[in-house]
């Protein structure tokens, strides 16, 4: 649907993106994951023409976009990190406003509004002011405002920041239904647990791709073993001790109550940690990200490692 080819962008001395080539396919959820400052939002903004790339090409359905980004924005709905709602207007007034500025005809607007209020479970809140909504409801209303123009491409920049776990699950249920309607969904997120809801993932670091792929394929073909420990001592004390032993700690990371280790299950390092439980686990996306991130292994621009 959208293809970026060899895109580079610098802000002063900071190289935000470096010769990045990615494709966002139709009817799929593509997740762009990475730490703060990895370049996630810059990709989205360049794609929408909000930031100009220093070099590289952007294609929409194989047509090269030169300066006319309205070809992309005209069929896209973009939800930035900070929701742009009018807090003094009600839910319905916000929907009316965003429909009107997108020139949605009256009958279509009324029909879409009811569908969206139904889909997001917000019918009973239609007369509540947006400023009085909870974080989860604001997020659903923001999503609804961008769906009023029936976009083919839905671009969401860190949509779940500050949103509670139950609302996040509901939000991704709605996103899944949009995918099934044939929309191209692109989501940036720092949370790798929710990235599991996607189809494809791009792990980004310092404007370069660490690894990308079909999420199920990545999880089925990991090049490492993940060992999970529950140490006897406090997990942070154990980590502090490991840090005193040189680079050893780089193979460990804390995840909830577990101390995860990437490497040989027979390693002598493990034997030095008093653990009440040690088990080998199937790695999740966060573990896979940590492997490439800690090893500092990047993809080449042609996709190879």
């Amino acid at each position: 649907m959208i293809r970026l080819e060899q895109i580079s962008k610098s802000f002063g001395k900071i190289q935000a993106l470096s010769k990045l080539s990615v494709t966002f396919p139709k009817s799929r959820i593509t997740i762009i994951a990475g730490a703060d400052g990895s370049g996630k939002s810059t990709i989205l903004r360049i794609m929408l023409g909000l930031v100009k790339a220093d070099s590289g090409k952007i294609f929409l359905k194989e047509d090269l976009i030169r300066n006319d980004f309205s070809k992309i924005t005209g069929i896209s709905g973009y939800m930035p990190e900070r929701f742009s709602l009018y807090t003094d207007l009600t839910v319905e007034e916000n929907l009316n406003f965003f429909a009107d500025i997108n020139n949605v005809p009256f009958q279509r607007k009324e029909r879409l509004k009811n569908i969206l209020l139904e889909k997001t479970g917000m019918i009973k809140f239609r007369n509540r002011k947006a400023g009085d909504l909870s974080g989860g409801m604001k997020q659903k209303l923001s999503l609804s405002t961008i769906l009023l123009s029936s976009p083919e491409i839905v671009i969401l920049d860190e949509p779940t920041t500050g949103v509670d776990p139950l609302s996040r699950i509901e939000f991704f249920r709605i996103i899944e239904s949009l995918k099934n309607e044939g929309k191209t969904i692109i989501i940036s997120t720092p949370y790798l647990d929710e990235a599991e809801s996607g189809d494809f993932i791009i792990f980004l670091k310092n404007g370069k791709i660490l690894k990308r792929g079909d999420i199920n394929d990545l999880k089925d073909n990991v090049p490492f073993k993940l060992i999970r420990l529950i140490p006897e001592n406090n997990i942070f004390d154990v980590m502090n001790d490991l840090k005193k032993r040189g680079d050893v700690h780089k193979n460990f990371f804390i995840k909830g109550k577990y101390l995860n280790f990437i490497g040989d299950p027979e390693s002598s390092i493990l034997k030095g940690i008093r653990g009440s439980e040690v088990s080998e686990e199937k790695p999740g996306l966060e573990d896979i990200y940590m492997y490439y991130e800690r090893k500092g292994i990047f993809e080449n621009s042609d996709g190879s490692i």
């Binding site: 990475g34 703060d36 500050g162 720092p190 949370y191 406090n234 942070f236 804390i254 966060e286």
Partner: peptide, 21 residues
């Protein structure tokens, strides 16, 4: 109050290490 909202897992881990200290 929500000190780790919107920050990535590695930053969160380091933050919690600091909280524990």
């Amino acid at each position: 109050d929500e000190p780790t909202s919107g920050v990535d897992p590695e930053v969160r881990r380091n933050f919690w290490q600091e909280i524990y200290n």
